[in-house]
């Protein structure tokens, strides 16, 4: 006959976390009415807790929150297709122009192979982009000064 009973911790482990429960605990509960009663009372507690009513909310949360929300600007994700196409087109145009006038260029800068054409094309294109960026930045600063 068993004279000692399981601790509360072990009883709860058996009731709520059986996977992590030792075999000896399971065996004990199977053969001990006192501990089995304790398990039953915890199961009853758990069942009653589950049946507890959800809180009654006396305000319309969705409405209250939506009224207070700051307006977020609609920002569609940037589509880079057009920009990429323009860049490729730019390279193409510059390369064609340089190739068409290669004789004049060869005389002028003494370039002979395709790599040189390519380097010059890229250089010219970057120069164009930087100039556009400078103009844009200049306009922005002017606008800021006008506003302030």
């Amino acid at each position: 006959m068993k004279t000692t009973h399981l601790s509360d911790k072990k009883i709860q482990l058996y009731t709520f976390d059986l996977e992590n429960c030792e075999n000896s605990v399971i065996e004990h509960i199977d053969s001990c009415d006192v501990c089995k009663n304790a398990v039953d009372s915890y199961q009853l507690l758990s069942k009653t807790l589950k049946e507890q009513p959800k809180p009654n909310v006396d305000f319309n949360l969705t409405e209250l929150v939506l009224d207070r929300l700051p307006q977020r600007e609609h920002k569609p994700l940037r589509d880079y297709t057009i920009i990429s196409a323009l860049i490729i087109l730019g390279f193409g145009i510059i390369a064609i122009v340089l190739y068409s006038f290669k004789n004049s260029f060869i005389n002028f800068v003494e370039i002979k192979d395709l790599t040189s054409y390519f380097i010059i094309s890229v250089g010219v294109f970057i120069a164009i982009l930087s100039s556009l960026d400078m103009i844009k930045s200049f306009n922005r600063k002017i606008n800021t000064i006008n506003f302030s």
Binding site: L6, S7, V34, N37, D40
Partner: peptide, 13 residues
């Protein structure tokens, strides 16, 4: 942290 005693549980239900 007492061990559980039988008398209480028998009364519970």
């Amino acid at each position: 942290e007492n061990n559980i005693t039988g008398s209480i549980h028998n009364q519970t239900e």
